[in-house]
Simulated assay, not measured.
Amino acid sequence: MLRHSIMETPAGPFTLVVADSGAVRAAGFTTNVPGLISLIHPALVETTEPADDVGPAQAAVRAYFAGDLTALDTIAVEQRTGGEFMGHAWQVMREIKPGNPVTYSHYAELSGRPAAIRAAAAACARNAVALIVPCHRVLRTDGSLGGYRWGLPVKSWLLEHESAG
């Protein structure tokens, strides 16, 4: 069973989809729960029901927005993909520190494949657990924002929040 909760944040509504184990399977700045669930790997999709509180992940998101920029670091995440690189790249993404965004090329290098800039960008694009797996901390090579599934105003807000912390 998966549980989901929509919470208000300074960056906009944020939805968490959490497994019984407490691991986050999807998260994003949206109220569209079916759309968010569609981002989860089919092998990880289960029946989903709303909940007022989905546990430690929700408390960590609140703490993050209250200024504890490391609150999300220990939240368990479950994502799957068809290849080894993507899973490894998501782990590496979680190691990018708040206030220290990196470029796609540097992210590819950190992920162990410096020439795989497009694969690094794909890891960002296919990330189903926004904020907790911080794809917002990856920028274009020229330092501009690039894309973000939840909109550039949200990405910009998150980066400003983290640089102020």
Score class of each variant (00 low, 15 high):
residue 69 L to S: 14
residue 57 A to Y: 00
residue 128 A to K: 14
residue 51 A to T: 10
residue 116 A to I: 02
residue 128 A to R: 11
residue 68 D to G: 04
residue 15 T to L: 01
residue 2 L to I: 06
residue 76 A to T: 08
residue 58 Q to M: 15
residue 165 G to R: 01
residue 11 A to N: 08
residue 156 S to F: 04
residue 16 L to I: 04
residue 91 Q to K: 13
residue 68 D to R: 11
residue 31 T to L: 03
residue 61 V to D: 10
residue 53 D to N: 15
residue 42 P to R: 12
residue 7 M to E: 14
residue 4 H to E: 10
residue 133 V to Q: 01
residue 138 V to Q: 01
residue 75 I to C: 12
residue 135 C to H: 02
residue 101 P to I: 02
residue 120 A to V: 04
residue 128 A to M: 04
residue 134 P to E: 03
residue 110 L to Y: 06
residue 158 L to M: 05
residue 7 M to V: 14
residue 90 W to Q: 02
residue 61 V to W: 10
residue 139 L to E: 02
residue 22 G to H: 10
residue 55 G to F: 11
residue 125 A to P: 00
residue 122 A to M: 08
residue 138 V to P: 03
residue 107 Y to H: 07
residue 105 S to V: 12
residue 129 V to F: 08
residue 59 A to G: 09
residue 158 L to R: 07
residue 97 K to I: 14
residue 51 A to N: 08
residue 63 A to F: 00
residue 144 S to W: 02
residue 60 A to V: 09
residue 18 V to M: 06
residue 36 L to I: 04
residue 31 T to C: 01
residue 117 I to R: 07
residue 97 K to P: 06
residue 131 L to H: 02
residue 1 M to T: 11
residue 160 E to T: 05
residue 150 W to Q: 05
residue 59 A to N: 09
residue 126 R to P: 00
residue 70 T to F: 13
residue 121 A to F: 13
residue 25 R to M: 08
residue 114 P to H: 05
residue 3 R to K: 14
residue 39 L to Y: 09
residue 60 A to N: 09
residue 76 A to I: 04
residue 81 T to M: 03
residue 129 V to Q: 03
residue 142 D to E: 13
residue 113 R to A: 14
residue 151 G to H: 13
residue 32 N to E: 15
residue 153 P to C: 06
residue 140 R to D: 09
residue 153 P to Y: 08
residue 82 G to V: 08
residue 148 Y to W: 04
residue 76 A to R: 14
residue 130 A to S: 13
residue 5 S to H: 07
residue 10 P to L: 07
residue 14 F to Q: 10
residue 28 G to K: 14
residue 138 V to T: 03
residue 2 L to F: 14
residue 94 R to C: 13
